[in-house]
Amino acid sequence: MKSLREIFNEHSGNLIHKLDHYFEIYERYFEKYRDKELVILEIGISHGGSFQIWKKYFGSKVKIYAVDINPDCKKLEEENVTIFIGSQEDKNFLSDIIKQIPAPDLIIDDGGHTMKQQIVTFEALYQHLKDDGVYVCEDTCTSYWYEYGGGLHRRGSFIEYSKKLIDSLYAWHSESKKFKVNDITRSTNAIHFYDSMVIFEKLRRKAPEHVTKGEKTIAHNEDPMASQRTLLHKIIKKVKSV
Rank of each mutant, 00 (worst) to 15 (best):
T185Y: 09
N182H: 03
K206C: 03
E209A: 11
S196Q: 11
K99V: 09
C137S: 15
Q100S: 14
D223H: 06
S174E: 09
I97W: 07
D132A: 07
A226S: 12
K206M: 10
A190S: 14
P104E: 05
K130E: 06
V134P: 01
I101P: 04
L165R: 07
Y161D: 00
Q100A: 12
P224K: 14
D139H: 07
P104A: 07
H128Y: 15
K216C: 07
Y135I: 08
R204Y: 06
R205M: 13
S143G: 11
M197N: 01
D167T: 04
I119D: 08
V120W: 00
D167H: 12
S176E: 12
M115A: 14
F158L: 06
E222M: 04
S187G: 12
D105T: 05
I98C: 03
Q127N: 13
Q127W: 03
L203E: 15
M197S: 00
Y146M: 08
K163A: 09
I101M: 13
I184A: 00
K163P: 07
I108C: 08
H173M: 08
M115L: 11
D132C: 10
T185M: 10
V120R: 03
V136W: 01
W172M: 10
I166R: 03
N221C: 01
H113E: 11
T142C: 12
G151F: 10
K206E: 15
Q117I: 05
N182Q: 04
A207W: 02
G149P: 06
Q118L: 05
Y161K: 01
K216E: 11
D223V: 03
E215T: 14
G149E: 02
A226R: 12
F158T: 08
H220F: 14
E215G: 08
V211T: 12
K116D: 13
P208W: 12
R204E: 12
G214S: 13
K163N: 11
I184W: 07
Y146C: 02
A124Q: 12
V136K: 03
R154D: 02
D183W: 11
K180D: 04
H220R: 14
